[in-house]
């Protein structure tokens, strides 16, 4: 298992770019579902970095963490989408800016 041909830094850099794109999605989009998808993107970016580190260290632990992140993400999506469906039922909208129930 020699040195990888592509420098690990490149993977991490790509991961950072994707992460920032995801973050911008969360901050800028008003559609709740899109925000959700952006969060998934961020998670994937983090996963990419983890896999890259695992490769670098020749250690399986990083990959296991990726695996767990995926599983938890699946759980999160299930609950999150259920929430969105419920919110849509009550308010007939998934525009995040019309929701400010936290205030009261």
């Amino acid at each position: 298992m020699g040195t990888p041909e592509v420098a690990i830094e490149l993977y991490v850099l790509l991961s950072a770019i994707l992460f920032v794109l995801g973050a911008m999605g969360v901050l800028l989009r008003r559609n709740a579902i899109l925000i959700f998808m952006s969060i998934e993107l961020m998670l994937n970016a983090a996963n990419l970095a983890l896999a890259a580190f695992a490769r670098q260290w020749g250690n399986g632990d990083g990959q296991l963490v990726v695996f767990f992140v995926m599983t938890v993400a699946a759980a999160e999506v299930a609950v999150g989408l259920a929430l969105i469906v419920t919110i849509f039922r009550t308010r007939q909208s998934i525009d995040i800016d019309t929701l400010h129930m936290f205030k009261d």
Binding site: F68, T71, V72, A74, A75, E76, A78, V79, L81, A82, L83, V85, T86, R89, T90
Partner: peptide
């Protein structure tokens, strides 16, 4: 993690149903 998944599944059902 398996437990979390199970709870999430139940949670999704409860959320969409109970409301």
């Amino acid at each position: 993690v398996a437990l979390v998944l199970l709870v999430a599944m139940i949670g999704a059902i409860v959320l969409t149903h109970e409301a």
